[in-house]
């Protein structure tokens, strides 16, 4: 898979206050990368930097091999952006608005019409083409925002809180749309809602106060975590003192969650437990759910 977007050491300050600490991001075709974090974590700022709306204070962004700062126009042609607040002209009809969007993205008149019909069809807007945007429901307005982001068939689609304000049925439709977009493109979306990221993305970056506290794949465990059950009930400190262990969490009675050092082998852990005579009942690899990772990451300590 080709790398569509590559951000290195991307950072942003406002009035000498660092709001996004140096961040590395890669996006390939087929990727749906989620930016997850509480409000104010820096998600929107990162997205604005990635789409060229905001200049970074440091670092580089390459889109399709071109540097966004050096060659903004070819880069921006490859990006479709839906900000948190859809950039809609409420006095226009959906057709007028989408035609203008296509026209401003350099298409000729006939291509504008084709692109408009295609994006309307993708976003389920066929029935509201002649209606004024201000008279549409919030869900439909969000879809119009999505349609403008994809009307020029960009390689990278950046969506800031795309399901915000939608009802469950609409959320499901938008998720399906995002998945279908990602078949031939790369998609970055932000949300502060865990299930949203879990349901849509294959990779996640968790942010806290502008700092990346977790970055990894959602489908495979990124943290070497094991759930162990012991016949004896040794003190947590004793378990933590074992050489392959970095941290221990007491779950209940004789059960613990143990995180191993990078590259450490669980067989080493079992050997040491047996040597200590604690009686190993269970040793199960544990995949952290996104919620656990999110809580671990945002309530202290890196996962």
């Amino acid at each position: 898979m080709s790398t569509l977007l590559n951000a290195k050491q991307l950072q942003r300050s406002f009035h000498s206050r660092l709001v996004v600490e140096p961040l590395d991001l890669q996006l390939s075709t087929g990727d749906i990368l989620g930016l997850l974090g509480p409000n104010g974590a820096g998600k929107s700022t990162i997205m604005r930097m990635l789409c060229g709306d905001l200049a970074p204070s440091g670092g580089t962004v390459e889109i399709g091999g071109d540097d966004l700062l050096q060659q903004p126009l070819p880069c921006k042609r490859r990006i479709g952006f839906l900000p948190e607040r859809p950039p809609l002209h409420h006095d226009q009809t959906v057709d007028e608005y989408l035609t203008d969007c296509a026209y401003l993205r350099g298409m000729d008149r006939s291509a504008c019409k084709t692109a408009r019909l295609q994006s309307k069809q993708q976003c389920g807007l066929e029935s509201v083409g002649s209606r004024l945007i201000r008279k549409l429901s919030k869900g439909y307005q969000q879809r119009v925002g999505l349609a403008q982001a994809i009307i020029h068939d960009p390689q990278v689609v950046i969506l800031d809180e795309p399901t915000d304000g939608l009802d469950p049925a609409q959320i499901r439709q938008v998720r399906e749309l995002i998945r279908s977009l990602a078949e031939t493109r790369g998609v970055i979306l932000s949300s502060h809602i865990l299930p949203e990221i879990q349901a849509t993305c294959n990779r996640v970056v968790i942010l806290q106060d502008g700092r990346t506290v977790y970055s990894g794949d959602l489908s495979t465990p990124a943290s070497p975590c094991y759930r162990i059950g012991l016949e004896q009930d040794p003190d947590e400190v004793l378990i933590a003192a074992l050489s392959p262990v970095t941290s221990v969490e007491h779950l209940h009675t004789d059960y613990f969650r143990v995180t191993l050092k990078t590259g450490a082998n669980p067989s080493e852990l079992s050997r040491l437990i047996l040597e200590k005579g604690w009686g190993l009942i269970e040793l199960t690899p544990e995949t952290l759910s996104l919620e656990q990772r999110y809580l671990q990451a945002t309530t202290g300590g890196e996962s």
């Binding site: 604005r48 789409c51 060229g52 709306d53 903004p72 126009l73 070819p74 921006k76 042609r77 990006i79 952006f81 900000p83 607040r85 859809p86 950039p87 809609l88 002209h89 409420h90 969007c101 401003l104 993205r105 350099g106 403008q148």
Partner: peptide, 14 residues
């Protein structure tokens, strides 16, 4: 105020 400037600033327009 309405955020429509983003439509232009994120498009391929200097």
């Amino acid at each position: 105020r309405s955020g429509t400037y983003t439509l232009l600033s994120s498009s391929a327009i200097s």
